[in-house]
Design a protein around this nucleic acid. Structure first.
Length: 813
DNA sequence: ACCGCCATTGAGA
DNA sequence: GTTGATGGAGGAG
């Protein structure tokens, strides 16, 4: 039995030693409180104070170093005691008594956060200076200032004014946080023979980098060796013992570059002491998502001479025996299982503790790591508590939205000392959000030292990383027939009058659902009239009976998102999940709006129109699929259907080995398309969001198979499936209707334009001439320039106003 | 006698 | 390279 203890001596250990735990917990605790109170703090000012009692403690601090102030209400000598600790959590001393009275008052009443910086280097073994700065909400400023001055301390006002002019510059830099990270000369490394698939050059590089990151003892470059001490240039702190290094990092290669394969190679090639993993049985773990993932035509096969124990920790019958789990080479599980186990056991309770949290792992890999980007979720908390030597995050979509998301990565990797919120907030988060350039540079340095990211277009030594076949986009304009045009124009003018009325009244936002419904209808017209379903022509909000109101709301909800279009929730600014519609006809994620209602109680108002909302009045989307049949019975074609069919027929007559993806946002449109496809004798499969994971995997496998008689066409709903589905068998993509979000289209195309693609990829976008679709394409272009992902701080109302302009452009008003 | 200046000295809560 | 208390030498009134 191997030793279970990986965390050696460093002062800031999270081992189960109760003594060290207390102090780090105290500091962590304050950090988490900060988290609850978001970055609303302004600087009230600062004052000079002194730290006393240095000689009784071991913590060292340098000139410029930040220190943490922790209240000690239980101190037997003074209930106002305020302890001073350095970045590593070692106590430095106490705040001098007279000053501590003041601080205790301010801190205990939550009037301000107090932060300390040591202005001078210290030789004195008894006392030292500390500059205390006070941060808090504007409304508390007076109280704090009064407290301070009434006790005859002098508060110096801090620098005021924010540097907004720098913000755009910073924003760009933030956008590029994950770009251009790797050009450093990293070698290549062959995988051990057990990995049958030969690695591509960039994968060998990644493997080499990962091995080095795990084995090499070198510290990140923000550590400098100064004499016998280790000096952190970001926090200006130094420690005697070599700081605990990150063993692992973030592999953030673009999707399709083979992160999973590289990681498997790593697991097999770099066991203890850089030796390959062979007979000796010690545990490893890969924490994994549920998405079935096949890889790029490179299949992960292992030669049978290696006896690899892999256990799938999943299902109610899973083996929870920790000795058994420790004996596995690899344990796979999902984030859900992990967090379920963790929350049942409460995480730290002995005895019934979560098995996965009890085992000491050699390595934990978070596949699709962006899933745990929000540190407040149970899943994330469970992941943070895993006990392991080496840590990896694999993600194809590096987090760009939010500094909080980045913190999660840093915290998981235990990138000291930033895994403690206070230091992250002080060194990175606050400086960056306040527009401090060095803050951003520090952030960049931080991310850079643990991340490898290449994109499909990255080049190494002047040569492309991977040579993917060409990809070209062509737009095929579709002319409506006379009859279709008449129908379209009728709906268009009607919609236009309605919307222009809203615009004139300035009530676009209040009637947003209506507006979207009109637009969706027009877009549906462009595809096929049958998409409209049984919608009535008018959707006024005037309702007579509650049942009637409900029926109308459901209808709107269906129009807004039941068709698969991409609407975003104004609360979380993400695509809506678990959609509900309010009585004022705005659509949100249920959890988001429920939170709003919960926190505002009776005063709860709709974030979009400020209308009153109640939890009991939220209307959900009912499940019903009856209308399908009548759609199929009286079938008629449409111009767009014809355009697609003639392309497909031509393609088949030229080369019947070429496979195609036919993509639409409207799943009903896919259903419509099935009819002519059958009629022309095409063999096809269908993949949409309603299918179970298992069924999806089946369909994908069928489509990817090159067996004779396998389908030539896949009908794909735009947003179906998680990340990482591989559809490289297809080399033609037909985008049947333009999406609001061009990124969604790109992602879709990437599913076939990826490693393993042998042919050039041709993408055809069908756009109906002289219709909303044309305008949508224009807006897509504008959108790309104006990617507002940077800080994610743009508030919903701001976003929605620009949407009003979008709508006007769409309707040519 | 007074005061600003300097060196000396000691130093949790 | 700090800070604060203290005390003494020394200059000005």
């Amino acid at each position: 039995m191997q030793s279970r203890r990986w965390f050696g001596g460093a002062g800031f250990s999270f081992a189960d030693d109760p003594v060290t735990e207390t102090l780090s917990q105290a500091i962590r605790g304050t950090g988490e409180e900060l988290d609850r109170e978001p970055d609303t703090g302004v600087l009230f000012g600062s004052l000079r104070g002194s730290v006393v009692g240095l000689r009784y403690y071991t913590g060292v601090v340098n000139k410029g170093e930040m220190v943490s102030l922790v209240r000690q209400p239980q101190n037997p000598y003074d209930r106002n005691a305020v302890m001073v600790a350095n970045v590593y959590g070692s106590q430095v001393g106490h705040i001098k008594r007279e000053l501590a009275v003041l601080l205790a008052n301010i801190m205990d009443n939550n009037l301000a956060r107090v932060e300390g910086v040591v202005p001078f280097g210290v030789t004195n073994q008894f006392t030292m200076s500390v500059v205390l700065s006070f941060w808090g909400r504007e409304e508390n400023r007076d109280a704090v200032v009064r407290q301070i001055t009434s006790r005859s301390f002098k508060l110096q006002s801090g620098p005021t004014g924010t540097h907004t002019h720098m913000l755009t510059q910073l924003k760009n830099a933030f956008d590029n946080l994950f770009e251009n990270l790797m050009e450093d000369k990293i070698g290549e490394r062959e995988a051990v023979e057990a990995v049958c698939t030969p690695l591509l050059p960039h994968q060998k590089q990644a493997l080499s980098w990962m091995c080095v990151s795990e084995n090499n003892a070198a510290l990140p470059h923000f550590w400098e060796v100064k004499g016998k001490l280790f000096y952190n240039t970001l926090t200006h702190s130094s420690v005697r013992e070599r700081p605990q290094r990150v063993r692992g990092g973030i592999l953030a290669d673009d999707m399709g570059l083979g992160k999973t394969l590289t990681t498997i190679a790593l697991i097999l090639s770099n066991f203890h002491h850089g030796k390959p993993l062979c007979e000796p049985v010690i545990s490893q773990s890969v924490s994994h998502t549920q998405t079935d993932k096949q890889t790029n035509g490179q299949s992960h096969t292992l030669t049978s001479d290696v006896k690899l124990n892999v256990y799938l920790y999943y299902g109610s019958e899973r083996n929870r025996d920790t000795h058994f789990l420790s004996s596995q080479h690899m344990v796979l599980t999902t984030y859900n299982v992990l967090s379920a186990d963790y929350s049942v056991s409460g995480g730290w309770v002995c005895g019934s503790a979560s098995p996965l949290h009890t085992v000491s792992w050699l390595r934990v890999v978070l596949d699709e790591g962006h899933i745990i980007r929000n540190p407040n979720t149970q899943q994330s908390k469970a992941v943070l508590k895993l006990n392991t030597q080496r840590r990896w995050i694999l993600t194809g979509t590096p987090i760009q939205n939010n500094l909080r998301d980045l913190w999660m990565l840093v915290a998981f990797l235990r990138l000291k000392p930033f895994d403690v919120r206070e230091w992250w907030n002080r060194v990175i988060q606050r400086p960056v959000t306040q527009g401090d350039k060095t803050g951003l540079q520090n952030l960049q340095a931080l991310v850079k030292c643990v991340t490898l990211r290449r994109t499909k277009t990255s080049r190494v030594c002047g040569r492309p990383l991977v040579s993917l076949p060409e990809r070209s986009v062509r737009i095929e304009e579709v002319e409506l027939t006379q009859k279709e045009r008449e129908e379209y124009e009728l709906a268009h003018t009607e919609g236009r009058t309605t919307i222009s009325r809203y615009v004139a009244e300035g009530t676009v936002l209040r009637n947003y659902a209506d507006v979207l419904a009109i637009l969706v209808r027009l877009r549906q017209f462009c595809c096929h009239p049958g998409l409209l379903g049984k919608t009535t022509t008018h959707t006024g909000v005037v309702a007579v009976t509650p049942a009637e109101l409900r029926e109308r709301l459901i209808m709107k909800l269906r129009l807004v998102l039941g068709t698969g279009s991409d609407e975003e929730c104004a609360v979380c600014l993400d695509s809506v999940r678990l959609p509900v519609i309010t009585h004022c006809a705005h659509v949100y994620c249920r959890p988001c709006i429920a939170e709003v209602i919960r926190s505002e109680q009776e005063q709860a108002r709709c974030p979009l129109c400020r209308g009153q909302i109640k939890a009991s009045e939220l209307v959900e989307f009912p499940l019903e699929e009856e209308e399908e049949s009548n759609l199929l019975e009286n079938w008629r074609s449409s111009s767009k259907v014809e355009a697609l069919m003639s392309s497909l027929l031509r393609l088949r007559s030229e080369d019947d080995s070429i496979r195609s993806l036919v993509v639409s946002q409207f799943t009903r449109f896919l259903t419509i398309l099935e009819i002519p496809l059958r009629e022309e004798g095409f063999k096809f499969v269908r993949l949409d969001g309603t299918m179970s994971q298992k069924r999806r995997a089946q369909v994908i496998q069928e489509f990817q198979s090159d067996a004779p008689g396998s389908p030539l066409i896949m009908l794909l709903s735009l947003k179906a499936g998680g990340v990482g589905i591989n559809l490289s068998a297809a080399s033609r993509v037909f985008l049947m209707d333009p999406a609001w979000n061009p990124a969604a289209e790109d992602q879709c195309v990437d599913r076939c334009h990826r490693l393993g693609q042998k042919r050039d990829v041709v993408i055809t976008k069908f756009i109906v001439k002289g219709s909303v679709e044309e305008n949508m394409v224009k807006i897509q272009r504008q959108k790309q320039d104006l990617v507002e992902k940077a800080f994610g701080t743009k508030n919903p109302s701001e976003r929605k106003t620009s949407r009003v302009d979008e709508i006007r452009a769409l309707m040519e008003l």
